[in-house]
Simulated assay, not measured.
Amino acid sequence: MKVMVMIKGTANSEAGELPSQALMTAMGNFNQQLVDAGIMESGEGLKPSSAGFRVRFSGDKRSVMQGPFVETNELIAGYWVWNVSSMDEALEWVKKCPNPMMVDSDIEIRPFYNMEDFAEVDSNGEISAQEDVLRETIAVQKSMQQTTLNNYLFFGGRCEEALNYYKQHIGAKIGMLMRFSDSPEPMPEGILAPGFENKVMHCEVTVGDSKIMASDGCGDGTTFSGFSLAITLATEQEAQKVFATLSDGGQVTMPLEPTFWSPLYGQLIDQFGVAWMVMLPEANNK
């Protein structure tokens, strides 16, 4: 069951009195125990109500009130969200908590509603289905916050020439650069055009605060041949999901599989004609 554990406000917390270093250390150790036990989803301290606002609803009218608010014992100074097996387990954890205030204080525990609690008013399940979609959307948004997206340019044999030009004229900084001859694994038979052995297989270029990836590609062209979007995911599960989603209705040009530069790497063209490179970071921990 999911519960919210609320640290009630005191006159001290409303005055903006900060906890001592000893109390901060003790609370940090307690939070570590919660994380190690696998029950803590989130937890934050709140500034005094003088930094907050209330919005009062009366019919179609809204009125805004600025803090501070006088009902100190009704205010919340901080909270956790826990996933526990029962209210008894939540109570046992709260009893282990250091006193979160420098004075006498209270901690309140309240369970969250589940959609099952609304079965009487959601007889056809439409609201529950909508909530499922929202939860999935939030989960995707949260996981994608760790995702990076870069342009990957293909110069058809003129990559090094382009790098030197951009370095001279727009201050580009060349980071890691690998030639096909540097590859620790041999290139598949027939994939590399004659004379491309010393061409750029992969490089990273920084212009201002933007990073661009580039390559000569494997062909024998002499002009700019296009680009891909290189998307780096945080976990194998996300990489598999994104690769499957983007390739639906499109074309897989390289299956998602381990390579010497990435635990998982694959290429595809989506149904809109956009080329993608999906990968995990080199130091990914599954």
Rank of each mutant, 00 (worst) to 15 (best):
R62H: 13
G221A: 15
A22C: 12
E120D: 13
W93R: 02
H202N: 09
P98W: 01
T147R: 10
Q271G: 08
M201V: 07
E136M: 14
I174M: 14
K286I: 08
F118C: 05
G217S: 12
V94G: 05
R110D: 07
G217R: 06
G175T: 03
M254L: 10
E161L: 04
D104Q: 13
N285G: 12
C218Y: 13
T245I: 08
I269P: 04
S49M: 00
G78D: 07
G125Y: 12
E282P: 11
V103D: 14
P68Y: 06
D60G: 05
M144H: 10
M102L: 14
K47M: 02
V5Y: 01
D106Y: 11
I127N: 02
S262L: 11
D248I: 09
R62F: 14
F227G: 00
A139V: 03
K173W: 02
S225G: 15
G226N: 02
A11R: 12
G38D: 10
V55K: 02
N284T: 14
K61C: 05
H202F: 13
M40D: 06
L163I: 13
I109E: 00
H169S: 12
S105F: 11
E236L: 11
D104G: 13
P19A: 10
I109A: 06
P184F: 08
T72P: 00
E41G: 14
F118M: 13
D182Y: 08
C218H: 05
A162F: 12
S210P: 14
A162K: 10
V84G: 12
R56C: 13
Q146C: 06
Q33I: 03
P255W: 04
G175K: 10
M277N: 02
Q240F: 04
V205W: 04
E74L: 13
M6K: 09
Y165E: 01
N29M: 08
G249R: 07
L280V: 05
E74D: 15
I174L: 15
K167P: 07
A193V: 00
D270Y: 09
N12I: 08
V242C: 02
Q32H: 12
V278G: 06
S225L: 06
S85V: 11
D117E: 06
E116P: 13
